[in-house]
C-alpha cells in the first residue's frame, strides 16, 4: 500500500529524459518556461506555452499530476482573476453589463476588455504554476538542495526542513483524518467542515513537534557541519546539455520577442492581439524547442 498521506504532486523518478536530467537543469528548464510566460501577454503565445508545459509533463510521465493540478486550479484561478479584474478595472470600451452603483466600488460596468485582461493574467499564472508543478515532479529535490547548500547553507537548511515536513505533515493529516473516521458517529460518512477543521488544528499543533524531530535528525547527521559538502561525481549527461540548451532557447526566444515587441497585445481600450506571422512562428517554435530534448529516449531508466 502506498504510504498514507503521500503527496500526490511529488518527485517520483521515472523513465524519461527529463527525470534523467540533473535537478538544477530541470529547475532551469521550468524556470525558462515561467519566464517566457511572464514576458509575454499575447494569448496565442501563452496558449502555446500552456500546451508546451502540458506536453512536457506528459512526455515526462507526469501528465496525470499536471492535469490534476490544472483541473483543481484552472477554474478557480480564472474565475477569481476575471471576477476581480471585471469589478476593479475602470478601463475598456465594450460594456456588456451595467451593474449600477456598488457603494465603495462606485459605478460598476463590466467590459469585454477587462474580462480578456483577467483571463490573460490567469493564463500566465496557470503556465507559471504548471511549470512549478512540473519542476516539483521532475527535479530531484536532493540534488537541488545540494546545489542550494553550496550557495547558501541557511536557505538550504530551511528548504530541507520544509520539504521534509510536507510529506510528514501530510501523512499526519491523513492519519488523523482516517482516525476520525473510526469514531463511532463518523463511521460511514464523509467528514464535515468541523471535523476537517479539527484535523487541521491538530496537524498544525503537531507541526512544531515534528519540525523539532526533523531538525534534530538534521543536526545529528551533521547538517550544520562547517565542512563543504563534496561535489558529486559524474559528468553532465547529454540530457543535461539538451535540456539546458532548450531552457536557453526558450528564454532567448521570449527575450527577443519582448525586446522586439513582436507579440504585441493590448487589452485596453480595445482588445488588440494581432496574429503576425512572427507570432505564429514563435508560437510553433516554443513547443518545438521545449519538446525536442524528449526525442532522445536512449539510456533512460527509472
Amino acid at each position: 500500500m502506498s504510504a498514507p498521506g503521500r503527496p500526490r504532486i511529488a518527485y517520483r523518478r521515472r523513465a524519461s529524459p527529463l527525470h534523467a536530467t540533473r535537478g538544477t537543469v530541470v529547475g532551469a528548464y521550468c524556470a525558462a518556461i515561467s519566464v517566457a510566460a511572464l514576458m509575454t501577454e499575447h494569448p496565442l503565445l501563452l496558449g502555446s506555452l500552456l500546451a508546451t508545459v502540458l506536453c512536457a509533463g506528459a512526455a515526462a510521465g507526469d501528465g496525470p499530476q499536471l492535469l490534476r493540478a490544472l483541473r483543481r486550479s484552472a477554474i478557480p484561478l480564472f474565475a477569481l482573476s476575471v471576477a476581480v479584474n471585471l469589478l476593479v478595472s475602470r478601463q475598456g470600451l465594450t460594456v456588456f453589463a451595467r451593474l449600477g452603483d456598488w457603494g465603495a466600488l462606485g459605478q460598476v460596468n463590466l467590459t469585454l476588455e477587462a474580462l480578456v485582461c483577467g483571463a490573460v493574467f490567469a493564463l500566465r499564472l496557470l503556465v507559471v504554476g504548471l511549470a512549478c508543478v512540473l519542476a516539483v515532479c521532475a527535479a530531484d529535490p536532493d540534488q537541488l538542495l545540494g546545489s542550494f547548500r553550496r550557495l547558501s547553507p541557511r536557505v538550504a537548511l530551511s528548504a530541507t526542513l520544509a520539504l521534509r515536513l510536507v510529506p510528514v505533515l501530510a501523512a499526519d493529516a491523513s492519519r488523523l483524518a482516517e482516525a476520525q473516521r473510526c469514531r463511532p458517529g463518523a463511521r460511514g460518512r464523509s467528514p464535515g467542515a468541523r471535523e476537517r477543521l479539527a484535523v487541521l488544528r491538530a496537524t498544525v499543533a503537531g507541526a512544531l513537534e515534528r519540525s523539532l524531530d526533523v531538525a534534530a535528525v538534521l543536526e545529528m547527521r551533521g547538517y550544520p557541519s562547517p565542512r563543504r559538502a563534496a561535489r558529486k561525481l559524474g559528468a553532465r549527461s547529454r540530457h543535461d546539455l539538451a535540456f539546458a540548451a532548450s531552457a536557453g532557447g526558450i528564454a532567448l526566444a521570449a527575450l527577443a520577442c519582448a525586446l522586439d515587441g513582436v507579440a504585441r497585445f493590448h487589452a485596453y481600450p480595445l482588445v488588440s492581439a494581432p496574429l503576425d506571422p512572427a507570432v505564429v512562428a514563435l508560437a510553433l517554435a516554443l513547443p518545438a524547442i521545449a519538446l525536442a530534448p524528449f526525442l532522445d529516449r536512449a539510456g533512460i531508466e527509472p
Binding site: D140, D142, R164, V168, R210, V217, G222, S225, R227
Partner: peptide
C-alpha cells in the same frame, strides 16, 4: 518517519557522509 530527511534512499544514506565532507 522523522528519521529520514531526504527524498531518495541513496541521498538519505549519503547525506551524513557528504555533510562530513567525504
Amino acid at each position: 518517519e522523522t528519521q529520514v530527511v531526504m527524498a531518495s534512499v541513496r541521498a538519505e544514506i549519503s547525506f551524513a557522509l557528504e555533510n562530513r565532507g567525504l
